[in-house]
């Protein structure tokens, strides 16, 4: 059996199984907490812990899947081009809103963590917490964070935005559909965008674009912000 666990087949198989299983579950129970990424991740962790399988063994297959994050980031450029055409007339205010939100996202999380005297490696891992996971991972690697911590927190931030974002914004007096979308995409990346799409097409487009713009902003400025504060 150990031979099977040591083969890349195991990691790929269990990830595919968990992913499609979690998607099937989500269709039956449409609650934010049953987010497919969260469910799949947690169920794989449970299997590894219960059967005492090394994370290194799992990663032999896992690495084959994460390899595709690189080309997926390039694909985001294509997505951005397509959606950009739809909101051209509103681009400047949109751009400013996302840049300000994105900058404050990095600055606020870094400052609060420093205030609590949390180890610097955690601060570096969380600086990019609001952007789409593949970009967050790249930023984290670049500034000396731990990509696994980044990915886990980014997914949780996305679920938080997905579950509570619209309610928080409505409570704070936001009525604009485009503003709701931009905020969800900036703060909660793709998982927030999934919720924005449920609120309507315009909201979804703004959210997807905001996710891309904030990804770029965060990739470019985070190393400098970290230099300033650490």
């Amino acid at each position: 059996m150990d031979n099977l666990f040591e083969s890349p087949i195991f990691g790929v198989f269990i990830t595919l199984l968990a992913f499609f299983g979690a998607n099937a579950l989500r269709k039956r129970i449409p609650l934010a907490i049953f987010n497919p990424v969260l469910m799949a991740t947690v169920s794989i962790i449970v299997v590894l812990v219960v059967f005492k399988i090394d994370i290194e063994a799992y990663n032999k297959g896992g690495d084959l899947l994460t390899f595709f994050l690189g080309p997926s980031i390039v694909a985001l450029g294509v997505f951005f081009y397509e959606k950009y055409e739809e909101i051209k007339n509103d681009f400047i205010p949109f751009f400013i809103a996302v840049i300000v939100g994105g900058l404050m996202s990095i600055v606020s999380v870094v400052l609060i963590l420093l205030l609590f005297n949390v180890p610097l490696v955690i601060v570096k891992s969380l600086a990019s917490k609001s952007v789409t996971t593949p970009i967050a991972i790249e930023v984290s690697k670049m500034i000396g964070g731990i990509p696994e911590i980044t990915a886990g927190i980014v997914i949780l931030v996305g679920i938080f935005g997905n579950a509570f974002g619209p309610a928080i914004l409505k409570f704070m007096g936001i009525t604009s559909k485009s503003a709701l979308g931009a905020a969800l995409g900036t703060a909660a990346h793709g998982i927030g965008t999934a919720r924005a799409l449920e609120e309507g097409k315009l909201t979804g487009v703004y959210s997807g674009l905001a996710m891309c713009v904030n990804g770029i902003v965060t990739a470019v400025v985070t190393p400098y912000i970290i230099d300033c504060f650490l």
């Binding site: 007339n89 939100g101 994105g102 996202s105 999380v109 914004l169 009525t175 503003a179 905020a183 315009l202």
Partner: peptide, 24 residues
């Protein structure tokens, strides 16, 4: 840290676009 930062990000982005955006 993560929740406070996420709420700040949501609000700032939304309020700026709500004030200055054109598409409602």
């Amino acid at each position: 840290a993560v929740v406070v930062s996420a709420v700040i990000t949501l609000y700032l982005t939304a309020i700026i676009l709500q004030k200055f955006g054109k598409n409602g």
